[in-house]
Computed example of a mutant assay.
Amino acid sequence: MKLYYSPGACSLSPHIVAIEAGVLMELVRVDLGTGQTESGEDYRKINPDGYVPALVLADGDVLTEGPAIVQYLADQAVDKELAPVYGSRARYRLMQWLNFISTELHKTYSPLFDPRVPPDCKAQFTERLAERFAHVAAVLETQPYLMGERFSVADAYLFTVSSWAPHVGLDLSPWPALTAYQGRVAARPAVRQALAEEGLLK
């Protein structure tokens, strides 16, 4: 398998999950500015939408969208318990978290990274993002991970998007449970390995 990624982008989430699951794959870096891979390949021939991640399977089929990819990877190593069993109520709870992170956190960042968006509009999106993180922090005050006592693929995704906060001027320190969570996840060997492989460890 091949994982197409850009350092620190949402593709970091499946990168972490692959390492946690012990799934071997080739990493292919994508320059999102030029739309080319590190070997000069046109990335849009892999994913016509042009964004990461994309996972090319052994048979050549391509999966896109992080929440789908992380569930696929988790299901390749069921014994690692990175996702509840498919069809269980807990699996739907996981999907709930993945959708929340995708729609309420991840996409809310988009205008904050766009230089064309006026400052007053960015302020509104920052406020909305803070409200969503406050909700997450309230959950993490009662349990170490989003699904309870165990790390799951949802945590790989939340860790990734919460790490973008300093880049848009959002201070997460008002939520100690959230910052403690970031430190807890960052200390995991698989997370450290993924960060190192993407050149993100200082």
Rank of each mutant, 00 (worst) to 15 (best):
M1Q: 07
M1K: 04
K2M: 05
P7Y: 06
G8P: 03
P14L: 14
H15F: 12
I16T: 01
V17D: 10
V17Q: 02
V17I: 06
I19M: 08
E20H: 10
A21Y: 07
M25P: 00
M25F: 14
R29G: 06
R29F: 05
V30Q: 04
G33V: 00
S39D: 15
S39N: 10
G40S: 13
E41G: 10
Y43T: 06
K45N: 02
K45S: 11
I46R: 03
I46N: 03
N47V: 04
P48H: 11
D49L: 14
G50A: 07
Y51Q: 11
Y51K: 07
Y51N: 11
V52R: 00
V52D: 05
L55P: 02
L55S: 05
L57S: 12
L57K: 12
A58Q: 14
D61I: 02
D61L: 12
D61P: 00
V62S: 03
T64W: 05
E65R: 01
G66R: 02
P67S: 15
A68V: 15
V70W: 11
V70G: 12
Q71F: 04
L73G: 07
D75I: 00
Q76L: 14
Q76A: 06
A77P: 01
A77T: 02
E81V: 04
P84S: 13
Y86Q: 08
S88N: 08
S88C: 07
R89T: 12
A90W: 04
Y92N: 09
R93H: 15
R93K: 13
L94R: 02
W97P: 04
W97Y: 14
N99Y: 09
F100I: 05
I101G: 14
T103W: 09
T103C: 15
E104S: 11
E104C: 09
K107H: 08
K107E: 07
T108G: 05
Y109A: 05
L112S: 13
F113S: 12
D114V: 07
P115L: 10
R116A: 15
V117T: 15
V117C: 12
P118A: 13
P119W: 06
P119F: 11
C121W: 09
T126P: 01
L129W: 08
L129P: 02
A134I: 01
A134R: 07
H135L: 14
A137T: 07
A137F: 14
A138W: 00
A138V: 00
L140D: 02
T142H: 14
L146W: 03
M147W: 01
M147F: 06
G148Q: 04
G148I: 00
G148T: 01
F151I: 04
S152Y: 08
V153S: 03
D155Q: 05
D155K: 03
A156I: 07
Y157K: 03
V161H: 09
S163Q: 04
P166F: 14
V168F: 09
G169P: 01
G169E: 10
L170I: 08
D171N: 14
P174M: 10
W175S: 06
A177Y: 06
L178P: 01
L178H: 01
T179R: 00
T179Q: 08
A180E: 14
G183Q: 08
R184L: 13
V185D: 06
V185K: 02
V185C: 07
A186Y: 09
A187M: 04
P189A: 05
L195V: 10
E197L: 15
E197D: 15
E198M: 10
